[in-house]
Computed example of a mutant assay.
Amino acid sequence: MSEKLLHIAGLGKAFGGNVVLDGVDMAVARGEIVGLLGPNGSGKSTLLNIATGFEALDRGSIVFDGTPIEKLAAHRIVGRGIARTFQLPSMPTRMSVMEVAMAASTARHGVWDTLLRPAPARQAEQAARDKAARLLRELLLEPVRDLPAAALSGGQKKLLGIVCALMGDPQMLMLDEPTAGVHPNLRNDIVQALLRLNAAGMTLVVVEHDMHFIQSLCTRCVVLDRGRIVASCRPDELASNERVAEAYLGAAAHQRAEAAQEAFA
């Protein structure tokens, strides 16, 4: 495997008596596109939240690009190079698409810098504007750049969330169900946009239920079930993996499926 960019070891998390993650070990190599799969309640979103600083872990370690990050706040983790999107992105009603993208830039200067150092602040502002314009164009949002962000479709809001995440120049992008509620015609656009990002060097971790999307995008899949990793394989190996079938169907259902296949063989 190539250089490990993210290394998670012994990760544990419980909410009261409910153990959500139980000793998870996971590594992501630089340049990979990893799909994080599992049935509802398997711990996918919790793992994503912990890795990005939105939840505290109970035990274990997380190392990103050689630096421990498990005790860092979310904004510090962004500064280290991990950005994320959300399943249901909320957009402001009084800001345009371009303004939202600009607000996400870490290069923008505040009002005091503008007053005290006007030339550098203007240069940074223009650089952020140029970057936002480029990303909106690459993510197919240039035609709606001046519309209110809240007026976008669900799929367009997902794309704008990706733009905002990319404004900080991350090394790794983590996406939480990027196609949930998205029109099928836009899903291929999202796949192609993410493949272009990966070709340019971005490492991706994608929480998703849409198996066609996963097969079109990911190079490897990690499957969680009841807080533990039960498989790490290529997307085309998922259907034949017994532990994956048991995670999604249950052991009894999997046995019935096998029996039916034998009966009609």
Rank of each mutant, 00 (worst) to 15 (best):
S2A: 15
L6R: 04
L21K: 01
V24I: 13
R30P: 09
R30N: 06
R30T: 10
G31W: 02
G31T: 00
I33P: 08
G35D: 08
G38D: 06
S42P: 12
L48G: 00
L48H: 05
L48Y: 03
I50Q: 09
T52E: 12
T52F: 07
A56T: 13
D58A: 10
R59I: 01
G60S: 11
I62K: 01
D65F: 06
D65A: 15
T67G: 04
T67V: 15
K71Y: 06
K71F: 06
R76L: 13
G79V: 04
R80D: 10
I82W: 01
A83P: 02
L88T: 15
P92G: 03
M95V: 02
M102N: 01
A104L: 11
V111H: 11
L115Q: 06
P118G: 05
A119Q: 14
P120V: 00
K131C: 09
L135K: 00
E138N: 08
L139G: 00
P148E: 11
S153T: 15
G154Q: 09
Q156M: 14
K157P: 11
G161L: 06
C164I: 04
A165V: 09
M167D: 03
H183F: 08
P184H: 03
R187S: 05
I190Y: 03
V191Y: 00
Q192H: 13
Q192P: 02
L194P: 05
L194Y: 02
L194A: 02
R196Y: 03
R196P: 07
N198T: 06
A200K: 14
G201C: 10
V205M: 15
D210V: 10
D210Y: 09
M211S: 03
F213D: 00
I214A: 01
C218M: 11
C218N: 08
T219E: 13
C221R: 01
V222P: 06
L224S: 05
R226K: 15
G227L: 08
I229R: 15
V230Q: 08
P235G: 05
E237G: 05
R243D: 15
V244H: 01
A245M: 15
A251N: 05
A253D: 15
H254K: 12
R256M: 12
R256A: 13
A257E: 14
A257D: 11
E258K: 14
A263Y: 10
A265K: 11
